[in-house]
Design a protein around this nucleic acid. Structure first.
Lengths: 366, 366
DNA sequence: ATGAAAGCGCTAACAC
DNA sequence: GTGTTAGCGCTTTCAT
């Protein structure tokens, strides 16, 4: 009497079908349809059969928004990354998304581009969209942003570190291990003058990586002059610029470690610009091990940080926060390992070895 | 009397604040709050002031789901890409997202990975999330997927081609122009034996690019033997494999054009593996012009397809479909230009020139 | 086992 | 100009 039930409701997009259309078609109440769709055991099998048939016939798709509204859970997870155009992140996004979808979640992706105001709006958007939790995988984040998120007490995952609150979990990346392996590899090859190109030092993880480098060098009794510590931007352009300045130094390093692979690619390119050939006078080590790394010229020796591990830990940590009965609900920290992958961008320092040995080194042609 | 108004409602996530909390705080009705938030001119400025203050104080964020439910529009746009790990797509995603957000839309991203079942579930998820429209930027799509989408008559954007229906718009990429420029560039350098590594030929755009290549060659009276036409996968691995097979041929091509940049990077890598140096005996041309292209060794000559143009056309086309009063609501096709960007992966064919001229060529050292 | 009805947070008629 | 109220599509008591 009140609403028109014989025709589907008025102002909907054509093609859109609601639970009422199914109920009508199957000759049952909307409650029964709901129960059927949600597979509650209490529905009569025959009835269920009829309902499924009706669903099929009218092409019904439950409206997630409405569901979310009543259930209070949107089944959406936020994923905030630094820069979607840095290949490391798409690789992680892909893993994250696969896992999320497999577990019935949708993913809302956001890229901060290191801009505070973007980050701000991102957070607000995610909150408004009612995501069930957010993974902030940005390798460095502004303090006040954390604050914002923390106020609404909802499940949050950070990388490296975050406030010690009940709803916050953190993924501890073991930078030290991988970077130590890198430094030791270089030292074993005979390098003593090793430079380091960091990420932007306002980012925590950039500092963490640099410190890990410094510590590893110190362990070996190797000195690092200030000029050999240059700040990059986590981009290829930054790598070029940094290497450009390194190259003007009176005492050249024989090897350079980079805070990420993009930087290393920039370094390789700069070296190429200078020598017009495959860089082989200076060894370079990256960080991340993006898929591209192995296809570089020369294939890049790099410290692998598994985006798979990162993604799956993030998802699990998030679910541990969302679903209070999750097995690891109490767990606050998740360890992410790193390890060196040796390829061909590292070699003996030029001229440090007898000619016979040099000839045996795969990457030296002369 | 019915609901508990003095405390915030019961089963909500702590920290979540509803319109009622604001109303209560400001001492007005929820309608006034709604009007204030939506900036309807009819609210008394003083009252509005009070409402904004209350909003601030309680930290109110309108619930998008509820809004979407009543308005029928979710302000979410779907963006389906082939492979999020192919750098071309993140670049486009970023542009798309920037534009979308600037216009008040959220973006739901999906990556098909060329798997039909993934695509299927993607579509279903987007439909359920009630996106206002979806851009299928996959450079090739399965027929039945199109069908699925078309049935629900809602705004859709495709690349290259789509069914001629009122709610469907298509972005026509001018492959011919860029590829012709590439072929002519190569021919001008003296190349006659030019191979082409295509994408997977079940994808329309892969076929389109290959055909454009064939046509351009024919225009110049250049023959393309069947062995010089090899099918790749749009990946670096595919490029390596394809170049690997090309290299075994009795009559080697002197140049190879690739269906995308990732393939070209694979080719460069394979050439490096073979010669252990920067590839310079064989010219290679890519397609897409991803950011990375200019950092390759050597910097990649490639056909640029502007992801910016693609993204903005997609957004505009989508909005033209969503908002019936959009200026270009009637427009069905949007032209996307392509053009050659010459860098250093192309050069004269080896040994085809007098020594003096060779010496003048920047990329040849001998 | 099934239906009626309340209500999730919000917008839009409709009253006043 | 402001408040009251009816839904948007759905889940979930509460009756039956």
């Amino acid at each position: 009497m009140k609403t028109n039930k014989s025709k589907s409701s008025k102002r909907r997009r054509p093609g859109s079908v609601s639970i009422r259309d199914v109920a009508e078609r199957a000759g049952v109440s909307i409650a029964t349809v709901s129960r059927t769709v949600n597979r509650l055991p209490s529905v009569d099998p025959d009835l269920a059969q009829r309902v499924w048939k009706a669903i099929e016939e009218v092409g019904y798709l439950p409206n997630t928004q409405a569901r979310a509204l009543v259930s209070g859970r949107s089944h959406m997870l936020g994923l905030i990354v630094s820069e979607i155009t840095n290949p490391f992140f798409p690789e992680m996004v892909q893993e994250f998304e696969n896992l999320a979808v497999a577990q019935g979640y949708e993913v809302l992706i956001g890229s901060t581009n290191y801009e505070p105001e973007r980050t701000e709006s991102l957070i607000r958007r995610m909150l408004q969209r009612n995501v069930d939790g957010v993974a902030v995988m940005t390798f460095g984040i502004e303090e006040d942003l954390v604050q914002k998120l923390v106020e609404r007490e909802f499940p949050l995952v950070f990388i490296d570190q975050g406030p010690d609150l009940p709803n916050i979990r953190v993924l501890k990346v073991n930078y030290a291990e991988g970077i130590r392996q890198g430094v030791q590899h270089l030292a074993a090859l005979g390098h003593r003058e090793i430079a380091f190109i960091s990420g932007p030092l306002r980012l925590r993880s950039a500092v963490a990586r640099r410190d890990a480098f410094l510590k590893s060098m110190a362990e070996l009794g190797l000195k690092v002059p200030a000029e050999h510590l240059v700040e990059g931007t986590h981009t290829m352009e930054g790598g070029m610029a940094a290497m450009g300045s390194l190259v003007t130094l009176s005492k050249l390093p024989t090897a350079v470690m980079c805070s990420n692979d993009m930087t290393a690619i920039g370094v390789l390119h700069e070296l190429y610009r200078t020598t017009n050939g495959v860089p082989q006078d200076i060894s370079v080590v990256g960080f991340d091990d993006i898929h591209l790394a192995q296809f570089m010229l020369p294939p890049l020796t790099t410290v692998q940080m598994s985006c798979k591990a990162l993604a799956s830990a993030a998802i699990e940590a998030l679910r541990a926060g969302v679903e209070q009965d999750h097995p690891k609900a109490g767990c606050k920290e998740w360890e992410i390992p790193t390890q060196l992958v040796v390829r061909q961008s590292t070699s003996f320092p030029r001229g440090s070895l007898p000619a016979t040995l040099m000839a045996a080194t795969p990457d030296h042609k002369n």
